[in-house]
Structures are given as structure tokens and as C-alpha cells.
């Protein structure tokens, strides 16, 4: 074999290997989409069909009626978490990157440690605290709890970004007579747009996908996001896989949309999570 032939064979092998691994990685998602179009009769049979067997839209009709409210709830929680992360994290990250404060080392260490704290520890306490201050079964309560995923990460990622802003930009604004707040809002935030979008995308997905806080600080009567609804539905109607799978498709939609629309931000956010570390 010549060198050229060998490199061509190698390249072909790589493509085949990559495609094979992608098939394995993506198969579960494919299976969900296919199953969401199958009848319950097909899904309860003894045979699994790898290709659509007897396609129907019936599951989606069932789900749109039953789950539309829960999808809206998840949307509110996701947006709420993103807004909370924005309000809390952006100014804090700016201060931790650009102001000479004694507390910085302590606070950044606390944020790194906060990322390690398991959610169940927070959830157990928050359940009792929320009970006490009447935040159980409420949007504010759930959003405050969901912020624990997003906020430490957001501050650390944004702080790493703000380091890269040249100090001259802010000094120029100050010379022009801008207050600290005006400098932050008109100069720093617009320059940090891409990092801000990254943390908002992640905060939204955290709020949308949360289950543990939904399970603990809600009782599923007044506020019930889609994850909790799917879990409850699965417990009550384990046999109705078609409807469950159609709900799952809806639960994955935001992530899929983000992957297409904000792919750049997702990839940078995933790696930034370790770079800041």
C-alpha cells in the first residue's frame, strides 16, 4: 500500500468508526421519536420495531391536551431561572473580576465549593425552610431553588470572560463621567454579550430540566413542570408508552432548539465550565 492509499483507508475507517459511535449515541433519541408515533398496541407487543411500524399522531393529540400546561410551567421556570442567574451573576462576576475587593478569594472559593454541593442536601433543607416561609408550591420558590444549579457556574464563567475585557474600556467611560453602574450597564454588559448568552442558555436548560427540586418543593397540584408531570404520568400509566414518549419529545425540544440556534454558546459553555476551574 502506498502512503496515500494508507491515509485514505485510515480516513475511511475513522469516518466509519465515528458514524458507528454516533449511531450508538443518538439511538436512544431516535427510538423516542419513533416510539412517539407508534400506537400503544405496537409498543406493548413483544417485538421492538426499529423502523416506524404503524405511524399515528394520536399520542401527540393526547399529550398536547394533557401536558400543554406543564410545558408552559417549565417554560416559565426556565426563563425565570435564566433571569435570576442574569440578575445575580452578571454584576457579581464583574465585581469579582474587576474590583479589588478583599472578599474575592473567599467568594470565588465558596462558588467553586458550591458547585460540589449535592442538590439533595439543599432540597431537604429548602423543603422545610420553604414550608416555614410559605414558598412551597410556588414559582418563586422553585426558581430560587433551581438557581443553585446555574448561579455558581454562571458567576465563574462570566468572571473568566470579564478578565479578558481591557481595563482601558472602563477607564475611558469613567473619564467621560459615567457612574460605575452606567459603565457596567452600557459598556461591560454589551461587550460580554456572548458569555451572558451562554450562561442564560445553561440556566434556562437547568430550570427546564430540573426534577429534584420540582419533586421536593412542589407537591404537583398548583405548579407542575413537564419533568414532574412525565414522572407522575409514568407512575400512573406505565403501559402508555406512546404518550410518555411524545411528552419526552416535547421535553427535549428546547435542548434541540438550543443545539441548533445556540450551538456555539453551548460548546463554549461546556468547556468554560472546566477552564474556569
Amino acid at each position: 500500500m502506498t502512503r496515500l492509499e494508507r491515509s485514505r483507508t485510515l480516513r475511511l475507517l475513522c469516518t466509519v468508526g465515528a458514524m458507528a459511535s454516533l449511531v450508538v449515541v443518538l439511538f436512544p433519541v431516535y427510538a423516542v421519536v419513533v416510539a412517539s408515533f407508534e400506537t400503544t398496541l405496537t409498543l406493548l407487543g413483544n417485538t421492538y420495531y426499529f423502523l416506524p411500524h404503524a405511524a399515528t399522531l394520536q399520542n401527540y393529540q393526547v399529550v398536547l391536551q394533557a401536558q400543554a400546561g406543564h410545558l408552559l410551567t417549565s417554560l416559565i421556570v426556565g426563563v425565570g431561572t435564566a433571569v435570576l442567574a442574569l440578575v445575580v451573576a452578571v454584576p457579581a462576576a464583574y465585581a469579582l473580576a474587576k474590583y479589588p475587593l478583599r472578599v474575592t478569594v473567599v467568594l470565588v472559593s465558596a462558588l467553586l465549593v458550591a458547585q460540589i454541593v449535592p442538590s439533595i442536601v439543599i432540597a431537604t433543607s429548602l423543603f422545610k425552610v420553604f414550608h416555614w416561609i410559605h414558598l412551597l408550591n410556588s414559582y418563586p420558590g422553585l426558581i430560587l431553588a433551581d438557581g443553585t444549579y446555574a448561579i455558581p457556574f454562571a458567576i465563574l464563567v462570566l468572571r473568566a470572560f470579564f478578565f479578558s475585557l481591557p481595563n482601558e474600556v472602563m477607564q475611558a467611560a469613567r473619564v467621560d463621567g459615567a457612574t460605575e453602574w452606567q459603565t457596567f450597564l452600557r459598556i461591560v454588559v454589551p461587550l460580554g454579550r456572548s458569555a451572558v448568552i451562554t450562561v442564560m442558555v445553561f440556566a434556562f436548560l437547568n430550570g427546564w430540566g430540573d426534577f429534584i427540586f420540582a419533586l421536593t418543593v412542589l407537591n404537583g397540584t398548583t405548579v407542575e413542570p413537564i419533568t414532574l408531570a412525565i414522572y407522575t404520568y409514568l407512575g400512573n400509566f406505565t403501559q402508555d408508552w406512546g404518550a410518555v414518549m411524545a411528552s419526552v419529545v416535547f421535553a427535549i425540544v428546547p435542548a434541540a432548539v438550543m443545539l441548533v440556534v445556540a450551538q456555539r454558546y453551548i460548546a463554549s459553555g461546556l468547556t468554560a465550565g472546566s477552564v474556569v476551574g
Binding site: 414522572y231 419526552v248 421535553a251 435542548a255 453551548i266 460548546a267
Partner: peptide, 19 residues
């Protein structure tokens, strides 16, 4: 495309694998 599984909510992943 390899990033896809990371973006699926964890509860939903559990439901998918149960299926």
C-alpha cells in the same frame, strides 16, 4: 451531535432508558 445526550434532562434520560 455527540453533545446531544448531555442536553437531555436527566429525568428524561431515565425514562428513555426505562423504555
Amino acid at each position: 451531535l455527540i453533545i446531544v445526550p448531555w442536553l437531555v434532562p436527566l429525568l428524561v434520560t431515565g425514562v428513555i432508558f426505562k423504555f
